[in-house]
Amino acid sequence: MTEPAIVVEGLTKEFVLSHSGAASLKTAALWWKRKRLERLQVLRGLSFTVPRGQCAAIVGRNGAGKSTLLSLLARVYKPTSGRVEVAGRIAPLLELGAGFHPDLTGLENILFNGMILGLTRRQAVERTHAIVEFAELLGHIDSPVRTYSSGMLARLGFSIAVHVDADVLVVDEVLAVGDYAFEEKCYRRIGEFRESGGTILFVSHNAESVLRVADRCLWLEQGTVRMDGDPQEVLAAYQAPS
């Protein structure tokens, strides 16, 4: 087995639930009136490794901890316990247009996002043309991003993520947003990415796309891995009526 690209070991993540809504100084000051905070354990000692070049899919019902896992990989959360290690640069592709500033133009957002994902300013500038071309946004790139349609946002987001030379691509079901032609282009690009040794972790509810790109499938349930293995077998078990 090649060296691992993603190592997740005994990963636990707890959230504090609040019933009072937004925090304020008032709730902090009136500590004796504060209700006891409830804790929600989303991930409970999750462990798995993804070797370099593998494309692993993650399936699971809502609330199984898929998005939390991706956020932990993207270093947005800090684990409650356990560890997450990603070898090399990670490009998270989460939700539509996340990380775009609505008032800036597409071009400005490309520079900005590219730099957040670890490019230098010069690299980001050099790649803008390729990114715009891939996203098919040539006529719109100087308009503010708030004027973009959801399809345009998704194309831009995908295009940036695949142009930052990431070693690991983390995808949260965004492949099915473009039109058919663009989707095909995305799959081709993902294929190229994998041929060049890139690792992919993606979350999807779409069995078809899991079968199409993944060579391994993890089924998460209640914060742990319920099943891990060949996509066809795992999906069959996952989709079987229980």
Partner: peptide
Amino acid sequence: LPIVKKVYF
């Protein structure tokens, strides 16, 4: 916060 919740920096 919307960006902070999505990407690391």
